[in-house]
């Protein structure tokens, strides 16, 4: 049970990163690697602020997200105003963030042992003691009360972020942002400031990554400057696995599927670990999961399982009237 709950907790925490990745990857169609730096930035900032004990744990999360937003905005500005390739801009900012994070923490690793984090705060609210390892019964399975509350809190936070993003993407600004990614020419012609939308979108995406990092640091009790390494791949894997599971791209379902993808992905990894996979094969096996998620839908496409998408080329090839010069 603790294994399952721990897996769900990490799954929900990283699902916030995944819905952030959904913005850059599915709205703006590129993988914004800034998120790896932002995740570490969120973790570093949160760890330092928590250790300083001058803010309550939720304010810490907000500040960490704001820091991530700033990082994303920098990538956005580099990309839109200085016309730097989006991938390259992301790499540049991610690289720079490495040093920034070292400065934020003043060293490469900050430990948070008995500090108040959102998780301990939530335990306090539920009057769960940090030291006594109380267990409760879930459908007959014994579960640690702390494990359970951790999973519940991360679920609530993922739910809040997902709902907020769902709401935002359906506002006037949010749909302008989606249109910018879908067809910038159209958006611009209809008065949308596309540069601003890209900057804001990347800021939002990275704020979510940073929030995810701040939660990860709070949950595992430390921040390390290397905490972000490889995270974007897992975020994208969650998005892709989720899409394969749900196969529908409306906003609400896309967000839900990213969260589910993240949880499912962590479950697969946990199962692989549980069954004593050789540790050296871990990355190989996770890559295989993602590969499977990528090719499974195309195997089914031969049949009529999927609605046919409109083929733009067919319509474009219409003939011109003969009277045309």
């Amino acid at each position: 049970m603790p294994l399952l709950l721990g897996t769900f907790t990490i799954g929900f925490i990283l699902s916030i990163l995944a819905i952030g990745a959904l913005i850059s990857f599915r709205i703006f169609n590129f993988a914004d690697i800034t998120s790896e730096g932002s995740l570490a930035l969120g973790a570093s900032a949160a760890a330092v602020l928590i250790a300083a004990r001058s803010f309550d744990p939720f304010t810490v999360l907000l500040i960490a997200s704001a820091a991530g937003a700033a990082a994303g905005a920098v990538t956005g500005v580099l990309h839109t105003k200085f016309k730097i390739n989006a991938l390259l801009a992301g790499i540049l900012v991610m690289t720079a963030l490495y040093s920034v994070n070292l400065h934020v923490m003043g060293k490469s690793n900050v430990a948070l042992m008995n500090e108040e984090t959102v998780f301990t705060f939530f335990n306090k609210c539920l009057s769960i003691s940090e030291t006594a390892n109380k267990t409760v019964s879930v459908f007959g399975w014994p579960a640690g009360a702390k494990d359970l509350s951790g999973a519940a809190l991360s679920f609530i936070l993922a739910l809040v972020c997902g709902t907020a993003l769902f709401w935002f993407l359906r506002t006037e600004l949010g749909s302008a942002m989606r249109a910018t990614g879908d067809n910038p020419q159209m958006a611009s012609a209809l008065g949308v400031n596309t540069d601003l939308m890209v900057i804001a979108g990347l800021a939002l995406s990275n704020a979510l990554a940073a929030l995810s990092g701040a939660l990860l640091a709070s949950y595992q009790g430390f921040a390390d400057v290397q905490i972000g390494i490889g995270m974007l791949v897992w975020g994208l894997a969650s998005v892709i696995i989720g899409e394969t599971l749900v196969r529908e791209k409306s906003i609400g379902l896309a967000i839900t599927s990213a969260v589910m993808g993240s949880v499912f992905f962590r479950l697969l990894v946990a199962i692989a670990l549980r069954f004593g996979m050789n540790p050296n094969d871990m990355k190989l096996i996770t890559a295989l999961f993602v590969l499977m998620a990528l090719i499974l839908p195309s195997l089914g496409r031969g049949g009529k399982f999927f609605k046919k998408k409109a083929d733009p080329k067919e319509d474009a090839a219409a003939t011109k009237p003969s009277e045309i010069v």
């Binding site: 006037e172 249109a179 879908d182 020419q185 159209m186 958006a187 209809l190 008065g191 733009p312 474009a316």
Partner: peptide
């Protein structure tokens, strides 16, 4: 190009709403 003026992965209503906010 008929594909330049609309956002293909958004619904008709969403496209119209973006247009209705022009200016």
């Amino acid at each position: 190009n008929p594909f330049s003026g609309t956002a293909p992965n958004m619904t008709i209503a969403e496209n119209l709403s973006i247009a209705s906010m022009r200016g």
